[in-house]
Structures are given as structure tokens and as C-alpha cells.
Design a protein around this nucleic acid. Structure first.
Lengths: 206, 206, 206, 206
DNA sequence: AATGAATGAGAATTCATTCAT
DNA sequence: GATGAATGAATTCTCATTCAT
């Protein structure tokens, strides 16, 4: 129906404008979610916070669920980037260094936007395609598993699957709990204790 | 005041009727919460599932929040009973035994009604007096702290506060994650690994 | 079914007890109505305030409307008594005395329970048999009319029907307004002005 | 902000549509209030009578109270216009003319929509910002007070504050009573009697 | 594409009234 | 007669979503 814009720049401009709108909407979603909680975060409120009409919001996201899913996607991509970066850098590091960095990295990842993380994890219904969280975890486990495999000779545990699960979940769970509930504990002392624990668990007895 | 009925049976009957209604409502709340999720769990649906009129529900619980709070209270009482029983029994046990039992107990506690636990923890907004979860945790930490204090001479970590936090959260967090997300991992192997990890962390080097 | 009480005293006692219950309920109705307003005055709240079960309330009053109607009846009886007493005493009084007393009496009548009067007049829906207020007014008009008729030779207005309407409503309306909205104005000054006005209106010019 | 539509017609159309909806809702509110009384006037019934969805009603009026308040505002604006117009015209009129016109005007003002006026005055709870009625009265009293002050030399009463209160309330109260309860009495005869009464009260004896 | 007015199903909650005990 | 648990229709209000302009 409507003729396409004739100039390439214009098109690009339009695309950029779309991108800006999408970003504004996602940003507003995060803001409202954190400020009001999931239940009080209505699409109308989000549209208003984004400075966009409710009609435009639905132009870009066909439902509230899609909107929240996109936000989760974005948040998980950001956390995932931190995780992948760190793991890539540590692939050749020595066990002790790698362990300490793993713990620190997990804290960093959770610290990206802890309030949003909390709402996403605690309040958003786990329905539809909102399962990205699991994916990230699976990925991290796979990477950790490969790392441990390569150093099997240094390690005490026989069942590396189980050991990996335990290590990754210990770090993830405790970090998660600390970030959400006792942020005052975050610091080098906690990192040290967790790393100690893991190293003592992993290292072959001498 | 209104005169009390004179016969015990009659009074008991009345009380029992009320109690049965309250139990039916709480039971239905748990059921609907698990089946439909927090958002879709309307008070009308709950009343219907309880085989009770919506009016009766509001006779006993002045708001939806109060209803969920009561359910949390009940659930936490049940978990708390498991925790307290076990901890009392372990107060004099040797470190290794106590550790293994701690892990097993935590799994048992989470296994009481894992699906309900999951909904309660993941979806229910943390408002009002829904903070019972923290209380339970604080209580467990205090007990564990006292236990470790009594055995300080056997232990390696200097800062017992931090060590207690780490131990309790490792057990709680990993158990939680396993129960909710990877129930197939639950078993003696996991208990063994966790206990090993903790013991290696706690024990003074020989 | 149930055998009637055999002794007369007992029956009387019962009747008295009934009367006390009815009074308690009506008193509680007035209290709750004044405190909470008509809309928030639920039958359950009233029963509770009366120290009586909701079932008992419905034993004596078949509906909320009947309950409020009975309260209006009682209140109007009280106001009516004041009006009738005064009017009987004034039947033979001289015009000036009668006028001043009429004004004072009307203020007294409204002052019996001004807050209840206000709620009854301003908030209670005028449905069913709640029309007692009109009756009282009609009665007062008839008495006043008769009084003026007997003194027609002293009076200026020709149409005594109209004159009576005006006089009674002037007194009633201004009193009502003053009691409900400007109680600080009530006093001898106001009485004097109103009486002056009426006397100047009624008296034949000399 | 969102860019404004460029054509005036389009913009006007949008505004008109909103305005029409608001008007329809207020009109329906008046209608339902008169027909059903305050208690039975539910927001759903009003929306239906307005031919508008309940959602639209709440888009414009955030609560039932706000809705009724807006209707009161509208009604009082209409009455206020009548009062102000008339009083402005009478500012320089002679006492007798002014008095007769005051009475006639008050009847006109009450006759604008007597049934609505009755419901608003008799049934609507006096809460929130529904106090416009008092304002109107205060305004009228101030105007009347100024008028009497300017003619003080013609007048008998010493205390003009009290005299103004009495005059305004006599007119207002009797008019109110006549319009609501005895509309058949409204007419030149009543106006004449009231004006006579007031003039005899106000005029200095000759 | 954008706008925002309109929609209406559905949610929480209240309250007059009934009735088994 | 008294009790108070139970009832459920009705009410206020929210919010995801649609669609005419």
C-alpha cells in the first residue's frame, strides 16, 4: 500500500528510529518492572514511561508476554556476554586463578542490574518462551565441564558431571542469594571463602 | 459477650466446621497456585476449588494477600519443623555426621511440597508479612553458627560468621536448585559431594 | 412446638428482654450510622456494635430497610413529642410569645440528636415507608394553621394556608440549615431575628 | 511529546469525541441517579445508560466519587450562572425590586433540574471535594451582604451579618423545600409572600 | 507508522440475608 | 430464641488488547 521510502538513508533512519523506540520501550519496561513490580506493571504504564503510545507498543510487541520475554532476552544476553568473555579468558588459566575469577565473574554478572534481575527471577511467571535463564546455565555448565575435563589429572572428584553441577551451582546459587538478599556480604572475603571451598573440593589431595 | 454453648460437642462441632473450611481454603490455595500460577490464581477460583463460597473465603481471610500469607506461614511451619527436629538431633553429633545429615535434611525440607515451594518462592510478590522465608533462614543460620562455635577447635576458617553463611547458603541454594530444576540429581551421590565439599572446607588441615 | 412459658413473670421478663435487645439494636444502628455513614453501615457491623448476633438482628427486623425505618420512627417520635408538647402549651399564648417559642422549640427539636438527624435526612434513601418526616411536618402545619385561624383578626395575610406554609417552612428550614451547617449561629440572636421577621410578616399593620 | 495531528478538523474530531463521551457519561449519571437513586446507581449501570463501556467511564473518571463530583460541579456551575447573572443585574436595583427578583431567581435556579438537585442534596454522601454546594451559598451570601451594606440607611436590622444569613437562608430554604416537596405552591403568590416577609423584616419602620 | 479512545472480560471485595445447629 | 457460618449476587475498578482515525 504505502510506497516504500525512496532513499536508503531514510530507510536507515527509519530503522534506527524503530530501534530507538524498541529500546525506549524495553528500558521503560525494566524501569516500571523494578519500580512497580510485575503485577502493577501494565502495558499502558510502560508505554507512558517510554513516551510512546500504547498502539506503538503493540506495533513492536504483540503481547505483554512478548514484551517481557524480549526484556529477559536482552538481560540474559548482557549477563551471557559477561560469562562468555570471562570463560574464554580463563580457558587456559591455572585452576586457582580460574576458580577465583569464576566466582568474581558470577558476582559481576549478577551485579549488572540486580534489581531487574530480582524482579525477573522472583516475579515473572515462568511461562511461554521465558526459559532463557536455563539456557545460560546450561551453557555455563558445558564450558566449565570442558575446562575441568582438560585438567582431570589435577582433580579429586571422579564423576566430573556431578562435580561440575555442584561447582557451578554453588557459585551461581550463593552469588544469587548474596546479591539479592545480603548485598553487604559481597566482597573479597566472600569470594575468598567460596574459592577456597571449591578448590579444596576439586583438588586432588596431596 | 454472647453466651457460650453449654455442651462441649456442640462447641467442638462448630470449631471443627470452621477449621475444616479454613483447611479446605488453604489446601485449595496451594493446589490452584501450583496448577495455575500466582497470577491466574484468583480468589474466586480458589473458593471454587475449595468447594466454598467466595464469601466464606473472605470471612476467614480479609484479602488475597492475607490468604497467601497464611499459606506461606503454614508451609514454612512445616519446613521449619523438619529443620528444627533435625538440628536438635544433630546438636551433639560429630562434624561429619552432622554435615551429611544437614544436607539430607535440607533436601527433605525442600521435598515436602516442592511444587508449592517453587511457586511461593518464584512467583509470590514479597510484600507485607510474607517475609517468613527469611526468618526460617535466619533461625537455621543461628543454630548452625552455635554448632560450629562449639567445635571451633576442629575447624579451619577463622571468620565463623562468614563460614556459617557460606555453608548454610551452599546447602540451601544447591538443594533448592536441585529440587526445583534437576530433581533427577537428588540422591546419595549429590549428598556425598556436597558433604565432602563442606567438610573439606570446614576441617582444619591435618 | 415449643411450650409457652408457664409463668406470667417469665413472659414479661422475656418481653422486657426483647425490648432491651431491640433498643440495643436501634441504638447501635444510630451509632454506626453516625460514625460510618449510611453506605458503610452494614447489618453485620450494626449487630456487632449491638452485641448481638446477626441472626438475632434479623429476628427483630426483617430487612435493613425495616431496621432503618424503625430508627427513623423512633427519632421522629422523639422530635414529634417535643413539637406536640410545645404546641399544646402555646395554643392559648399571645402571638409574640407563641412565635418566639415556636422558633425555640424547633431548634430544640432539631437539637435532640443533630448528627443522627443529619445522616437520616441527608443520606438515607427515601424509599419504602421512610416518609415519617413529611407526616410530622404536616401535623405541625395543621396545628399552626389552627392557631393562626383562631387569631385571624390580628393578622395581615389573607391567605392563611399560604401564610402557614411560609411561616412553618421558614422556621423549619432555617433551623434545619443552622443546626446542620452553622451550629455556631444558634442562639438568642437568631431566634430574635426569625421571630421578628415572622411577627412583622404576620401582624396587621397598625 | 507526540506530534500533534496537522489538520485542525482531525484534532477537533478527536477532542469532540472525548467531549461527547464525557458528556454522555455525565448525562447518564444524572439520569440514573434520578431514576434509581444514589445507592442503586452503579458505575456499570451508568456506563450502559451512556452507551459506553465501563472501561471508558474509568478512563475519564477515576472513581465513582470523582464521577459524582464532576456531575455536582456541572450542576452547581449551572445554578451558579443563574445566581450570578441575576445578582449582577440587581446590584443597583431598588430594595423591593431586588428582593422580589432574588426570590424569583432562587426558584429559577432550583428549577433547573429539581429532581437531580434533590438526589444530589439528599442522597449523595458529603465526602471528598463534594462541597461545592457550600461554596455557592457562601458566594451568594457575600453578594447579598454587599448589597445590603450599600443600602444600610434604608434598613432596620443592626447586625447585617445576621440579617444577611437569615434572608439568604429563608429564601434558599423555603425555595428548596417548595421545589422538592410542594412544587404546586411555586408561583407568584409564594414569591409575593416571601418578598413581603423579607421586606417587612428589612425595611426601617416609617 | 503512530495515536489514544474504546473495549469488556475478569479480578478483588462487600454485604444483605439464610439456615443448620 | 439465639448463634454465626455460609452464601452468592452485585459492585468497584484494572488492564491487555483492538481499531478507527
Amino acid at each position: 500500500m504505502a510506497p516504500r521510502p525512496k532513499t536508503l538513508p531514510r530507510k536507515a533512519a527509519t530503522q534506527e528510529r524503530s530501534k530507538a523506540t524498541v529500546d525506549a520501550i524495553l528500558g521503560a519496561t525494566a524501569k516500571v518492572l523494578v519500580k512497580e513490580g510485575y503485577d502493577r506493571a501494565s502495558t499502558n504504564r510502560i508505554a507512558e514511561a517510554a513516551g510512546v503510545s500504547i498502539g506503538s507498543l503493540y506495533q513492536y510487541f504483540p503481547s505483554k508476554e512478548a514484551l517481557v520475554a524480549a526484556l529477559i532476552e536482552r538481560h540474559m544476553d548482557e549477563m551471557g556476554a559477561v560469562v562468555r568473555d570471562s570463560m574464554a579468558r580463563l580457558a587456559d588459566a591455572e585452576l586457582e586463578v580460574a576458580t577465583r575469577e569464576l566466582v568474581r565473574m558470577m558476582i559481576d554478572a549478577h551485579a549488572l542490574d540486580p534489581k531487574l534481575h530480582k524482579v525477573l527471577v522472583e516475579q515473572v511467571p515462568r511461562v511461554g518462551r521465558l526459559e532463557r535463564i536455563q539456557d545460560l546455565e546450561a551453557h555455563a555448565i558445558a564450558l566449565a565441564r570442558a575446562y575441568l575435563e582438560a585438567r582431570r589429572h589435577e582433580l579429586r572428584p571422579k564423576d566430573l558431571n556431578l562435580a561440575t553441577f555442584v561447582v557451578v551451582h554453588v557459585v551461581e546459587s550463593v552469588t544469587h542469594a548474596a546479591v539479592l538478599r545480603s548485598p553487604e556480604l559481597l566482597g573479597d572475603a566472600l569470594i575468598g571463602e567460596l574459592a577456597d571451598m571449591i578448590l579444596r573440593y576439586l583438588r586432588r589431595d596431596v
